[in-house]
Write a protein that binds this DNA or RNA. Structure first.
Lengths: 142, 142
DNA sequence: ATATATTAGTTGACGGGTCAATGATTATCA
DNA sequence: TGATAATCATTGACCCGTCAACTAATATAT
């Protein structure tokens, strides 16, 4: 036991500050929130998905998905319809506009992430990924 | 240019997932939100601070501070009074209860962070801090 | 065949953050 | 001195997430 509280605390603070910094900046740069872009990404890779399938691929709850999709429907990036084979489920798909926007957003994201990782060489990136994965695992133990 | 989009994206996703994981777990384990504990921490190190000073030390805005303090006042961990020398400012201080609780919360936090960093030796922690700092700097460029 | 359970989605209330507008107080300066 | 500006705190409206309650539809089991 070597008494490194300050160092541990520093990491904790940094992780929080980082998250707090990243999301708003991303939204400002890319013109869309990370979550919505992830939704678009999922939708981009299929023709049509049920809302529940979509939701399970994200780490947000069903209510949040409903509200995002409602907003995205109003802004014309997606469409929704009932599944005739099962009236509980609603099927979601990207509009053509949605596909176009998704491509532009992705480009913005690529730029954003490139800037975020400025100065990190390949090996450092690998180390970082490894460490973040380990932190994630440690959290899951709680 | 070596085309490492997936790796870059992975880091971006991991950072977000991590934040989303840490906060709720922390709150469940420690019994208080990270932000409120940081408020308590600031207050712990002084007799009395003006709300504005307190706010500037945190990375949240004045409205959020007002609401947190209001809640903490009701739950008896802090008290507030007007500064007689300047009626715009309100002075905040921890109650005795608040100091006691703060100590307990800190212990929970210590445990939490220790678990979070399980498996990280001293050198790795240093590397991690360095990397997180660099990410933070990169964000600030945007 | 019907009662019961499960599933999908929506809504409302809440916590935690933002921004913008407001009120009250104090500073500034012409 | 008296108008104007700056400062501190609060409030309201919004975004984004949670959970819990509810509806509607389908599955299950007796």
């Amino acid at each position: 036991m070597t008494e490194h509280y300050p160092e541990e605390d520093r990491i904790f603070e940094l992780l929080q500050a980082l998250n707090k910094g990243i999301c708003p900046k991303f939204e400002r740069c890319a013109g869309i929130s990370p979550t919505r872009l992830r939704l678009l990404n999922e939708l981009f890779q299929v023709d049509e998905v049920s809302q529940i399938t979509l939701q399970k691929g994200m780490d947000i709850d069903a209510a949040a998905v409903t509200r995002h999709l409602k907003g995205m429907e109003e802004s014309g990036t997606i469409t929704r319809r009932n599944n005739p084979a099962d009236n509980r489920v609603t099927l979601v798909s990207l509009t053509d506009q949605g596909r176009e926007r998704m491509i532009q957003y992705s480009e913005e994201k690529r730029r954003f992430v490139a800037t975020l990782l400025t100065g990190f060489n390949g090996q450092e990136r690998t180390v970082l990924i490894d460490m973040l994965n380990r932190l994630q695992s440690n959290i899951n133990l709680l």
